[in-house]
Amino acid sequence: MKWFSVLIAGVVLMMSGCSSIGGQSQQWAPPPMAVPLQPSIQQEVQIARTTQLLLRNDINDQERAELHFQRGVYYDSLGLRELARYDFNQSLSINPAQPDIFNLLGVYFTQVGQYDAAYEAFDSTLELDPNNQYAERNRAIALYYGDRVDLALEEMTRHYNDDPSDPFRALWLYIVEHETNQQQAFEKLTTSYANRDQQWGWVLVGLMLNEVPEDDAFMEIAAGAKDNLTLAQRLTEAYFYLAKRHQLEGEYAEAVSLYKLSLSLNVYEYVEHRYAFLELGRIFSDIRAERKQQLEEASQESE
């Protein structure tokens, strides 16, 4: 199986892998590597500075709400989500008209499976900012994870039609539609890929369709990344969507390993990092359900 034989080595190397082509044994190409992101001095200084400003008594409510929001964003970028949620809620208690905060809270609720709360948060974002494309996509994704696939498909189709040139819209439309009509989803994504422009994200679509060899895709990602941050971000996305492809094909072992690689780069603010945890939980639940059914069937046959 492509990739799976080198996943462990890829983790040690910090990472992205390569594959053999056409089933033939070949020399492994040097993998592109990204150092997992770490807290920077600038982030730590900004958190400390914001905390000091919040202790002052001479700031008005508008400034205090903004400071809580800023500190929440810094916490979120470091993966400190409970601290971020505290600051976001503090900011909303002062100024409730903040669509970006409701959008972030909606993503948090989606991550932990609190879908009704997620829908309400995204609805609040869109009431305050009807043109917020991120909230529109995130609400459709929340509906997908909440097993409300028909509504998710309706919203994701509308989101895709607003900008068919966006490869990430095409990917998420495919993922959602795959639940109801696999052939139609494949044909639509193939058509979108045939009409692609030069945005790098179409490489991920090629990976999803298995049109681009995995080693070629990851070499292209490495060549196009100008620094470690960009490389880590793009690898996080690539690992996630490649994992999703394996998951949709029922190849759970490969999917689990790739989701873990997506998580390993610490790109906390990317939805691909956020939803990788959710996907892992869904896979483990599916495996447990399948195993339980197998045991029940074996028990019935032995009676």
Rank of each mutant, 00 (worst) to 15 (best):
M1P: 14
F4A: 04
S5Y: 11
L7V: 15
C18G: 08
S20K: 14
G23P: 06
G23H: 11
Q26H: 08
P30V: 14
P32F: 09
P32S: 12
V35E: 10
P36S: 12
Q38V: 12
P39R: 08
E44V: 14
Q46F: 04
A48T: 10
Q52L: 12
L53E: 08
R56K: 13
N57E: 10
D58A: 03
D58Y: 03
Q62S: 13
Q62C: 11
L67E: 03
F69N: 12
F69E: 08
R71A: 12
G72C: 04
D76L: 07
L80A: 10
L80I: 00
R81G: 03
E82Y: 02
A84L: 02
A84T: 00
R85Y: 06
P96G: 11
D100F: 10
I101P: 01
N103S: 15
N103F: 06
G106F: 01
G106D: 03
G106Y: 07
T110M: 14
V112H: 11
Q114L: 14
Y119F: 15
E120R: 08
F122R: 06
L128S: 11
D129R: 07
N131E: 15
N138P: 04
N138Y: 08
R139N: 01
I141P: 00
L143E: 10
L143K: 07
Y144S: 09
G146D: 02
D147Y: 10
R148P: 02
R148F: 04
H159T: 00
Y160G: 01
N161K: 03
D162Y: 05
D163T: 07
D163F: 04
S165T: 14
D166K: 08
F168A: 02
R169A: 06
V176W: 02
E177P: 03
E177Y: 00
E179I: 02
Q182H: 04
Q184Y: 08
F186S: 05
L189G: 05
L189I: 04
S192Y: 07
A194H: 10
A194I: 09
D197F: 10
Q198C: 13
Q199W: 04
W200D: 10
V203R: 10
V203F: 11
L204A: 08
V205Y: 00
V205K: 01
V205D: 00
M208R: 04
N210S: 15
N210H: 09
P213V: 11
D215A: 12
D215M: 11
D216N: 15
A217C: 13
M219Q: 15
G224R: 12
N228E: 12
L229E: 06
L229R: 03
T230A: 13
T230Y: 09
L231Y: 06
A232Y: 02
A232R: 02
Q233S: 12
R234D: 04
R234P: 01
A238D: 00
A238T: 05
F240S: 04
Y241I: 07
K244I: 03
R245K: 15
H246I: 02
L248R: 07
E251T: 07
Y252M: 14
A255K: 11
L263W: 00
L263A: 03
L263V: 02
N266K: 09
Y270K: 13
E272C: 01
E272H: 13
E279K: 04
D286T: 13
I287R: 11
E296K: 06
E297K: 03
A298R: 10
E303S: 09
